[in-house]
Write a protein that binds this DNA or RNA. Sequence first.
DNA 1: ATATCGATTATCT
DNA 2: GATAATCGATATG
Length: 209
Amino acid sequence: MIRPLLREFFARDPRKVSRELLGKVLVRASQDRDATLTARIVEVEAYLGENDPAAHGSAGRTLRNEVLFGPPGHAYVYFIYGNHYCLNVSCEPEGQAGCVLFRALEPLTGIEGMAQARAVTIRTPRDLRQLTSGPGRLAEAFGITRIRDNGCDMTSPSSGLWIGNDGYRSRRICLSPRIGITKAAERKLRYLIAGNPFVSGPKRLAAQV
DNA sequence: ATATCGATTATCT
DNA sequence: GATAATCGATATG
């Protein structure tokens, strides 16, 4: 049993949304019900609307980032380093630009499909990390592109890409600085489930909170 | 196990 | 023209 999150869940400060998104489930619907992709959210980063120079919304509205200024609970997908897509979900009430970046997932169902999308072979349980540990990897595993997914409503299962609650409770949450940014690099806005093996990075460094 | 580096393009200055 | 919320390959200890 998995229920979609409500719009009001996302109409809040991205730090609050980040903390509560840990343990929820990202769902990509498929024609074959057995091929539906689901994975637990184990690592995210908060990007604030104002006073956060690392956030795409901080310099104001542009063609690329307009989803951030729209209603909460919608997918913001952008292309980075000429190679990868990154998935975010918009937060805050309409008009404010906060969002949460999905950084790592723990695969639950549809693992075969994820492996095919990533073009990797799973031989041992450790190989599962290759599927969804990292923002570019999880986007590839879920077939996420800007054309297909930017602006879709992630509170609605009919959109095919949505976020649900299956009743799971994460035990312990850690904070650390965000990864891969140069501006505001010291701020601790990365949220992860302590000890989860699918958290991204070689050494899954984190400070206790 | 950690460090460094190249790929490749949309976006903004 | 420079940069970027990354990844995978290669080099080195």
